[in-house]
Simulated assay, not measured.
Amino acid sequence: MNNGVVMPMLGLGVFQAPPEATAAAVQDALRVGYRLVDTAAAYANEREVGEALRRSGLARDDLFIETKVWISDYGYDATLHAFDKSAGKLGVDRLDLLLLHQPLTSRFDLTVGAYKALEKLLADGKVRAIGVSNFMPQVLRRLLTETSVVPAVNQIEVHPYFQQNELQRLHVELGIVTQAWSPMGGITSYYRGERSTFDDPTLQRIAREHGKSAAQVMLRWHLQHGRAVIPKSTKPERIVENLEVFDFELSPGQLAQIDALDTGVRSGPEPDSVTLENYGRQIPDA
């Protein structure tokens, strides 16, 4: 990343993983070789992630743990406390990456205060890197005018049907890593989804050509374009499958065919629609 910290390109996401299934999924992932786990205060499963980390027996320095501050905890002091809440649930003294979960454009003063708290946590060594999530170009540029540290990561919706190329070009310009949530387009299957990436004929054909699944092809597409990915699954066989993407390579022509699938249509919520009135929720203490 732009501060020299090394982050695995592929990790396990636990968005919408029920708490009762989260610990087992993380344990399975760590057992087969994952070393990055992405969670968030708003997912309500940080405690279970922490339980799995402890059970794994792996050294803390071998793990990369990232989580996100929810909008209800924005503002300088509130965000400093949000770190304590997340670190306490995860059972760690230091986080590898801490992100602001949404830009909260309706109260950008709170967003700036929250990011300045991240800068303080970074300076104090409580986090190794800081970043944002779902920040669009104009909002990202605005943040940079009011803060000092360029985010190491912007975690955004990216998959073959929604590629956000303008934002990704800005990331390259600024030295920000693009980390894709819903990297296989799973969100297209259940949210505003009439078309699912998993059934796409182009992806299915490329998958057959490599003896792989459409999911593996999508993950490989991200990696060859230099994006980090955090596919989510609680099924042991899928967790293994998602890791088996380093033994084949897509051709330039195949990459271009997948690039051409972009619809420009977001499946997740519009970032500007995420307000305290619509999405505020209390995040419990550790």
Rank of each mutant, 00 (worst) to 15 (best):
R169A: 15
S213Y: 12
Q164V: 10
Y161R: 04
R169T: 13
L170Q: 13
I187F: 07
L170H: 11
N165K: 15
R169Y: 06
E166S: 13
P201C: 11
Y161T: 01
S182V: 05
S196C: 06
A207L: 06
R195A: 06
P201T: 12
L203T: 05
L170W: 05
Q204D: 14
G186K: 06
E157C: 14
Q179P: 00
N165I: 06
G175R: 01
Y190G: 12
Q168L: 08
F162V: 06
Q164P: 14
Q179T: 15
K212I: 07
L203Y: 04
D199M: 03
D200L: 02
R169G: 08
S213D: 13
Q168K: 10
R208G: 02
E173Y: 07
I187L: 14
R169Q: 15
G211R: 15
I187V: 15
I176T: 10
P201W: 12
S182Q: 01
S213G: 05
D199P: 06
Y161M: 12
Q155W: 08
E173V: 06
I187P: 08
H159F: 10
N165Y: 07
I206P: 04
V172I: 02
S189T: 13
Y191P: 01
F198V: 09
F198S: 13
Y190W: 14
T197W: 03
G175T: 08
G186I: 01
T202I: 14
M184E: 01
T178I: 02
E173A: 11
E157V: 10
S196Y: 04
K212V: 08
R208S: 14
W181C: 06
T197F: 03
Y190R: 11
G186N: 13
I156F: 03
Y191Q: 13
